[in-house]
Amino acid sequence: MRVAENLNRALHGLLGDDPSVYVLGEDILDPYGGAFKITKGLSERFPGRVLATPLSEGAIAGAAAGLALAGEKAVVEIMFGDFAALAFDQIVNFAAKSVTMYGRRVPMPLVVRCPSGGHRGYGPTHSQTLQKHFLGVPGLSLFEVTPFHDNRGVLDRMLALGEPCLLFEDKVLYTRPMYGEGAVDELFTWRLVDDVAVVELAGGGDPDYTLIVPGGLAHRAVSAMRTLLLEHDLAGALLVPSRLHPFDPAGVPGLVPLLARTGLVCVAEDGTAGGTWGEHVAAGLHTRLWGTLRRPVALVSSAASVIPTAVHLEREVLVQDTTIRSAVLEGLHG
């Protein structure tokens, strides 16, 4: 099953099971079913709770927060994650703050879905991955869709947190299949440790390096791992968390032995360089595993640049599997 279908089914299941859930967004009604068809079929089955809105991201997020405040649950679709900037005040200054700024905890079950990422030629304002702008906001959690985590579980978890959550969804990942139980391909297996998908060489020993990436980069990371194994004889491990923030891999007991035995930790992400999620994760690793890490954590991100439209220019700016491969080689041997 492709990731988009998994996410669509998760929304169908959620609306079917919980009559307090609303879905709001632009152009999400059938037969159109949303710009990326993630909401396909929802409005026909749940016409009163799947609501198409005007082009008003601030009002969509605010109205969703109002629903949550009144005891409902809300899932918002921001057509392109870039436009979450238009809802920044409602997300950061209202929904997230409201959880704690009134003295006693105010439940705010609210998910803001953000289709993100490039590689599709949509240009500078329709290709970004904006996690870094929402990092470290008290009362706000960041999640990302992965090919490992069933999205129904992810949606249930976010709503149960009782605080607003952003769900980043890589647009290319939509078209890729979910990984079946246990196997990534003929070389690699995967398992869950806490909420982190751990990909390892089947029957392998200690990894030469370990990658940590959000779900949107999972396939590029696996592709890099194959090349590094087959062409450079380097065995790698890969960690893909469901929740990106807060995220503290060195605080997960089941991951510490792996991180301690690895030759290099490399954190890769699609956000542009500077003030990134990866820097935050690396700072945590350096602090918590200072006596154990063999080398400084290597960082990979998109260039500190706008994301160009033309395919050859876009490719130079965004993270490719080859970017990850080079970073690992340089980290280990550079």
Partner: peptide, 27 residues
């Protein structure tokens, strides 16, 4: 920034209007 039962205030101009619309939808 006060909240008590169904009374709530916020300090950002205009911010409460969409939230009030969402509550009105529930009502």
């Amino acid at each position: 920034h006060l909240r008590r039962g169904r009374y709530l205030s916020t300090g950002v101009q205009g911010q409460s209007m969409p939230v009030a619309a969402g509550v009105a939808l529930h009502l």
